[in-house]
Design a protein around this nucleic acid. Structure first.
Lengths: 336, 336
DNA sequence: GTGAAAGCGCTAACAT
DNA sequence: ATGTTAGCGCTTTCAC
């Protein structure tokens, strides 16, 4: 038997079976609608019998909003990205909303993907590690779809809301902790140069150092990624004036730095070399690493994000939401 | 100025501006449509001027298919899940398709989520670490939406296609390797009891052992998760007859086992205790672990999946696709 | 090749 | 409270 798409039961079919008008069927499925209990039950019964459920595409067409949140993932290689997407999907599913995902290739702009999402009448656009042109952001705003930028604050543009962690403060907290533990020759493995996240973490760290009268220290860039950090750590640890502690702009780089220090240079982490990260990813707490870090839980960030996403349509989202983290001291920065 | 959703330009608006009928506008945006080059250009120009792009919701309503692949994530805590979603989004975005994600809470059935996805007229449903009732699967099939089960073969049900790795063979390969390296007292940390994946990996391993005349060995279950494996490893290594090698049904458990063996029991991984995993996740190659494993790349699995997903609508997908992996020998199972 | 007209399945006035 | 009617924005006959 040739399998062919079977026409689904429509509200009409249900109406006929229940002996009511098609509008009544619609009302039976609309929460606050004015319909007699009796009628609703008859409709629901008929619907049940036919396996009917209102077509959300048709509903979206009328309402001009789809109940869908469009997500553009700029660069999936950043490790926090998938964790964020996971948390987001979980929370939004609980709220009965769907997530339409587009992944951009390379580091290009998200514009083409955002446009596509707009064509599905996404209620909101969330950018994760992605950039959007101001022009398109303005257009989204005009079309009533708020644009949120996750963990990548954008130049304050009308209609874009940014949610990010307190990177500056975290950098400073790490610096203070390292100094308190007696580390003095501090190095930095920085994140990607073009991200405010990377910039702010480093800036917070350096500012705190400067405030304590400490000069500049060794620096290399790791681009937020493992491979970059492996190279950076090798370079830093090979230098004549070897540092006694390294601050990495995220945990993934810190884990890589630990690996290099331990296996290539035979250093005892904590005692010979302090290593601190940023984010508190899962592996940070594993005993193989036991990494001191500034915990900026993706869950907390997503929680904030979802709150904004679920705001009444038309609500102007706050331009910048900053989520505070907390220093998590572990063995990688203790000398005793 | 009160921000209000601005009505988007419709095909009508474009038609008026271009001095053609609304149908012509539709044709201008339909690849194979019969329209004069001249007309098309005039339409596209007008569209450009107005910022018009065809509304995909309206198109979906007519066509009965949305260009959307619905994904239900059963349990996001399995670590391969997000890797799979990532690869899937990347590949489908390249193909110009979208991914609508729903995450189930707990280990419940995916049925309610699948139903929701159906209401959006998803072209296909992909289950990742999720279960569906046969009745609903049948309904999806009737409605023309193929159901694919990723890495979780389901009892052959009409309309469900499974894509999974060669778990049995992988288990056997690990067993063979461990024996070849001279390990003799072998233990297993098994995966979740209700998954064929877990079952098959263990079965392949045990069958190979049996074929070599080796009896049963210590066994504990880790439920595929880190916490479970920590406990399982402690229990196994505390037993009077301590094994000299442990096979774990996935890498995440193997990493946990290494941690316990190394830090709680002071064992040298490889020499004192062989540890092997399954999957070849990223951390397996990190030097802190250097884990021998059966590499079953999520990318390869997703590649197969996407191929099926992009088949002509109406094509009956193969009931079972098995993707072969390869043994990856590393330091965690070498005695020299 | 092009326009007119008929819907896709639903919601939202508007009557009653 | 319920039925009737008019669309939402598009694709697709069907004439010409």
């Amino acid at each position: 038997m040739m399998s062919r798409r079977q026409p689904l039961p429509s509200a009409h079919d249900v109406a006929r079976l229940a002996g009511v008008s098609q509008a009544a069927v619609s009302r039976a499925f609309t929460p606050g609608a004015s319909i007699a209990n009796d009628t609703r039950e008859r409709v629901l019964e008929a619907a049940q019998a036919l396996g009917y459920r209102p077509n959300l595409i048709a509903r979206s067409l009328i309402k001009g909003r789809s109940g869908i949140v469009g997500v553009v993932i700029g660069d999936p290689r950043y490790p926090f990205v998938m964790a964020a997407l996971n948390a987001l999907c979980t929370r939004l599913s609980q709220a009965g909303r769907h997530v339409l995902v587009h992944t951009a290739e390379g580091d290009g702009t998200a514009d083409v993907h955002v446009e596509e999402l707009l064509r599905y009448r996404a209620d909101a656009i969330l950018l994760i590690a992605a950039h959007i042109s101001p022009a398109l952001a303005a257009r989204c705003h005009r079309e009533g779809a708020p644009v949120l930028s996750f963990s990548r604050p954008l130049r304050p543009t009308r209609g874009i809301a940014s949610i990010c962690g307190d990177n500056r403060k975290g950098g400073a907290a790490i610096a203070e902790h390292l100094l308190a533990q007696g580390y003095r020759r501090l190095a930095v493995i920085a994140g990607a140069a073009d991200t405010t996240t990377g910039h702010d973490r480093e800036a917070g760290f350096l500012e705190h150092l400067a405030a304590r009268g400490l000069g500049p220290c060794t620096r290399a860039t790791g681009d937020f990624r493992r491979e970059g950090a492996l190279a950076a750590a090798r370079s830093i640890l090979s230098a004549p004036d070897r540092p006694d502690a390294i601050f990495c702009a995220n945990d993934d780089m810190a884990l890589a730095a630990i690996e290099v220090a331990r296996y290539d240079f035979g250093l005892a982490i904590g005692r010979d070399l302090g290593v601190a990260g940023f984010d508190d990813v899962e592996q940070a707490s594993w005993r193989a690493f036991d990494l001191t870090t500034y915990a900026l839980s993706v869950d907390r960030l997503i929680e904030q994000t979802v709150e904004i996403l679920l705001d009444e349509p038309g609500t102007e989202p706050p331009a910048l939401t900053i989520v505070e983290g907390a220093l998590k001291v572990r063995g990688s920065t203790r000398r005793d």
